[in-house]
Nucleic acid binder design. Structure first.
Length: 418
RNA sequence: GGGGGAAUGUCCCGAGCGGCAAAGGGGGCGGACUGUAAAUCCGCUGGCUAAGCCUUCGUAGGUUCGAGUCCUACUUCCCCCA
């Protein structure tokens, strides 16, 4: 943790105050670099899915603060390392992804960064790089001679990610064992190419990052530094990022701004203050005031959290629209126009059985599930509980061509006649 | 190379004398209570044209009226010996 360290640089001060820091290899060293100006830092992002999810917001915000405090952020796409697969925190070997899949994922992930960082050629402009650029060109024998000889297997065996696998008698394949070597090499290579001296990441990356620092020292690079963020869990201990409909994706085509807004709005009471610090840029005294609210008043703070977090990712307009949709839906009980919707031709919609209607709306996965939800009182059509599973939609159910289907109290989908 | 063990509901863990849509738990979803929170309690958690039908226990065959359960081969994983 941060101990009694008193930072002089804006960069470290902000990160410490807002709770971004779990471990740092050398606070004074990083502070000095940041103070001198021109601190360049990078964070690597795996390309294992077509979109990042909320879990990645923490590192992204760190890059953003770095830029705001005068540093130069580098977003590293793991186009090369994803082909190998990071065993950290995994108790089972990850399936290898195809190269095409990785490239497609990379394209999806890229989109997000424009919203948080300013890219360009200036001294504190962000850049995006891909480690496939150098990793895929490595020659095995050269790599072993130039880089591999600096790695101590003895040390690697003592790292948590490796030790865990060994202790549990779970296989750790050679390719995975190499992951940390590649990530370590990345750090040295990025330092050589861009003068980057700091690598940041989640706390599970500590071992990999420190291995890079070590390699840098042995290969004659300047002093490198590590800075990690805490692993985010909700106050009841659950891993963050999962919700009703799966992961909380950052790309709008995978989770609507409204859905993203709802995610923050529904967070647990105990998380509000912490999340405001991490995921919004509200001044700290404001955050402290909001986080200190009691009971039902805290709901106002949750709305602000949702507004601010959504505005950062999807823009102010989308955030306001989501807030308005939520207000109409939950506070007025009025039908809000831009709830998620599904369009159907009239011929199909009128006379459609309720069961299939809910399946079409995507609220349930099968008619069987729809039947069960009806038994449990979980389905509503235009806010009236559905009781008869044989009922069919009639023209009267579509006011102005729109019928509102709900699952539970929170999930609503509009069925539109096109 | 030799010997021994394992694979179960496509979220996970995990029971299962030849009659099984298959115990139990976690997770998830829904209901009640609330504040769109947490905690608690209750229900649900293979598919369908649904009192019926269909598909499921690593893969492929076999024995049997009947196989998750027995036999054979194969695949993958683990353990012990070399």
């Amino acid at each position: 943790m941060t101990g009694d360290f008193q930072p002089k640089s804006d960069f470290l001060r902000v990160l410490i105050e807002r709770g971004f820091i779990h471990q740092c290899s050398d606070f004074a060293g990083v502070d000095e670099k940041a103070l001198a100006g021109g601190l360049t830092a990078y964070i690597g992002f795996d390309c294992t899915a077509t979109s990042l999810h909320v879990g990645s917001m923490l590192p992204i915000m760190m890059l953003r603060w770095l830029q705001k405090t005068g540093g130069k952020p580098i977003a590293l796409m793991g186009g090369g390392t994803t082909r190998v697969g990071d065993p950290s925190g995994k108790d089972e070997a990850r399936k290898l992804l195809s190269v095409e899949q990785i490239e497609a994922n990379k394209d999806g992930i890229r989109q997000v960064f424009d919203k948080f960082l300013t890219f360009g050629d200036g001294p504190s402009d962000a850049i995006m790089i891909d480690n496939a650029d150098w990793l895929t060109k490595l020659n095995y024998i050269d790599f072993l001679r130039d880089v591999g000889r600096h790695f101590s297997v003895n040390r690697m065996m003592s790292m948590d990610s490796v030790k865990m696998r060994l202790e549990r008698d779970q296989e750790l394949s050679f390719i995975e064992f190499n992951y940390m070597c590649l990530q370590a090499y990345d750090f040295v290579e990025i330092n050589r190419r861009y003068g980057c001296t700091l690598q940041m990441g989640g706390s599970d990356q500590w071992g990999n990052i420190v291995t890079g620092i070590d390699l840098g020292r042995r290969m004659g690079a300047p002093q490198l530094y590590a800075l990690t963020a805490p692993l985010l869990t909700t106050s009841s201990g659950a891993k963050m990022g999962k919700t009703a409909s799966g992961a909380v994706w950052l790309n709008a085509d995978m989770l609507s701004p409204y859905g993203y807004w709802q995610f923050w709005r529904n967070c647990e009471d105990g998380d509000v203050g912490r999340f405001l610090k991490l995921f919004t840029e509200l001044p700290l005294d404001e955050v402290n005031r909001l986080g200190g609210l009691d009971g039902a008043e805290l709901n106002e703070a949750k709305k602000i959290l949702a507004n601010e977090a959504t505005a950062l990712l999807h823009g102010r307009a989308a955030a306001e629209s989501a807030a308005e949709t939520a207000r109409k839906t939950f506070e007025e009980g009025v039908l809000a126009d831009d709830l998620p919707s599904v369009a159907l031709p009239a011929s199909e919609a009128i006379g459609m059985g309720v069961l299939s209607a809910f399946v079409r709306a995507g609220l349930v996965a099968s008619t069987g599930e729809a039947r069960r939800q009806i038994k449990g009182g979980g389905l509503r059509l235009n806010d009236a509980p559905v009781t008869d599973e044989k009922a069919a939609l009639t023209a009267a159910d579509f006011k102005d061509g729109v019928a509102k289907l709900s699952l539970g109290k929170k999930k609503h989908v509009l069925l539109r006649i096109e």
